[in-house]
Amino acid sequence: MKILVPVKRVVDYNVKVRVKPDQTGVDLANVKMSMNPFCEIAVEEAIRLKEKGVAEEIVVVSIGPAQAQETIRTALAMGADRGIHVTTDATVEPLAVAKILKGVVEAESPELVLLGKQAIDDDSNATGQMLAALMGWPQATFASEVEKTDTGFNVTREIDGGLQTLAIPAPAIITTDLRLNEPRYASLPNIMKAKRKPIDAKTPDDFGVDITPRLEVVKVSEPPKREAGVKVETVAELVDKLKNEAGVI
């Protein structure tokens, strides 16, 4: 079985994001970038399926500027077999990403597309669902456990009422949630080996996809600063503040 894992280069989750002075976007100058945490979980799950003997090959694909090759190399160092880099310096919206991934899926013919449920930069949570719709494949989102069966996959997902288990046939698309696994760190020998693993270069034009943005960013601003809390001496004082100052009761 071949597994395709899309990965995205985003601002590292430990970095405090700053808005540009002109409010046109987020300042990325001299900011540490890394693999999207949910994508990292998807890569780890694909590697675990390979270690169980379920998968034979793991292909990672990333869409973005030249620096996105670093993200692909990270996935290769973790244990993926080869990479595909779709090069573009433009901002690519989820629908365009899904259309590009559709072209990659048709070229690679994987049995499973395993991707993070969302990226921490735009929080769109849409690419996996859009790809499933374009391909006409079954999907299971927010997976907390994935098990291979004779005909497909059993996917356990967390819902408001507890846990739900879905049985879906292959080929399928699964998006990963936080509690699926704990991603491994790449060892130094594997980092060196990753430099020799192949990365195929592509462009959106190779898949006939127009990546012109459909959305316009009007303004980006920081959330308002929270006011410091206060201590009250009695319940009556608390009720008074909630009623007359906060206006919530």
Rank of each mutant, 00 (worst) to 15 (best):
G162H: 04
N125H: 04
L215D: 01
T88A: 03
R157S: 08
E40Q: 14
D210S: 11
D177T: 12
I84W: 02
R214W: 01
N154L: 15
A246H: 01
I191Y: 05
V248W: 02
A201G: 06
I199P: 01
P21S: 03
R157Y: 05
Q67N: 06
V209K: 01
I63Y: 10
L131I: 06
P204K: 14
L131W: 06
L188H: 02
T175Q: 03
D121E: 02
P204W: 03
L28H: 01
K102I: 02
Y185D: 07
H85V: 05
G79I: 00
L178A: 08
E222M: 13
G83F: 08
E158P: 04
K8Q: 05
I191D: 10
V220I: 03
E70C: 08
I174Y: 04
I159E: 10
I47F: 03
L131G: 05
T24P: 04
T87A: 14
Q164I: 13
Y13N: 11
K8N: 04
L4C: 03
G152M: 01
A194R: 14
R157L: 07
E106K: 13
L178S: 11
K241N: 13
N36F: 02
S109Q: 13
K99I: 06
E44A: 09
N190P: 00
A236G: 12
P138E: 11
N244S: 09
G116S: 07
T87Y: 12
E111M: 07
D205L: 11
M192I: 08
F38R: 02
V217D: 11
I72A: 07
A90E: 15
T71K: 01
R73A: 09
D206N: 03
D27N: 01
A236S: 12
Q118W: 10
I100K: 07
G128K: 03
K50I: 00
D205Y: 10
R73C: 09
L28P: 05
Q164T: 05
G162E: 02
T149P: 09
N36C: 07
V113A: 09
P6F: 03
G136Q: 04
Q139C: 04
G247V: 04
V7W: 11
T88F: 05
V7D: 03
K241I: 15
E108F: 00
L215Q: 14
L180G: 09
S144D: 10
G162K: 01
S124Y: 08
I41N: 05
K225Q: 05
L28M: 15
L76W: 04
V86A: 00
M78I: 00
P198A: 00
V31D: 12
D210A: 13
K225N: 06
K219P: 13
M33R: 05
G103E: 00
R157F: 10
V86W: 10
Q129M: 10
G53H: 04
G162F: 09
T91K: 15
Q118M: 12
D122L: 08
Q118N: 10
A29D: 15
A90R: 15
Q118T: 13
T156N: 01
V15K: 08
R214A: 14
K193Y: 04
V19I: 12
S221A: 14
S34Y: 07
G136E: 09
A55V: 14
V60F: 08
Q69F: 11
Q118L: 13
G79Q: 06
G64W: 06
G83D: 08
G136I: 11
